[in-house]
């Protein structure tokens, strides 16, 4: 998928993460901050990159502000932000396909 405009998903509530995606031409640029950085920073990074890879996003500036979200939440927030960035979040979401 291609990031057409900047989009946000998630909140700054405890146990959630706010994910912002923006168009880019330089591959994947990740900016991550987390309340559990020392213990889970690497896992969060891996989950974000895997999710973008699964959605076939090649170029994207992604900013994650994590407040202790579980992996499933982080995946969902990344997916939602990407779909919103190309106006595909309203209908025909590929449940069980690219989104799982």
């Amino acid at each position: 998928m291609t990031i057409e405009k900047s989009a946000v998903a998630g909140t700054l509530e405890s146990s959630d993460a706010m994910v912002t995606v923006e168009p880019s031409k330089n591959g994947i640029e990740l900016e991550l901050s987390s309340s559990v950085m020392n213990q889970y920073g690497r896992q969060i990074k891996a989950v974000v990159l895997e999710t973008l890879d699964r959605l076939e996003v090649k170029n994207c500036k992604v900013t994650v502000v994590d407040k202790g979200a579980l992996d499933c939440t982080i995946k969902a927030r990344v997916e939602c932000a990407v779909f919103r960035s190309c106006d595909k979040a309203d209908k025909n979401i590929p449940w069980g396909g690219a989104v799982r």
Binding site: N38, Q39, Y40, G41, L70
Partner: peptide, 10 residues
């Protein structure tokens, strides 16, 4: 199993 195995602090 719920939160993942934490990395050791450095």
């Amino acid at each position: 199993s719920l939160v993942g195995t934490p990395d050791d602090l450095q």
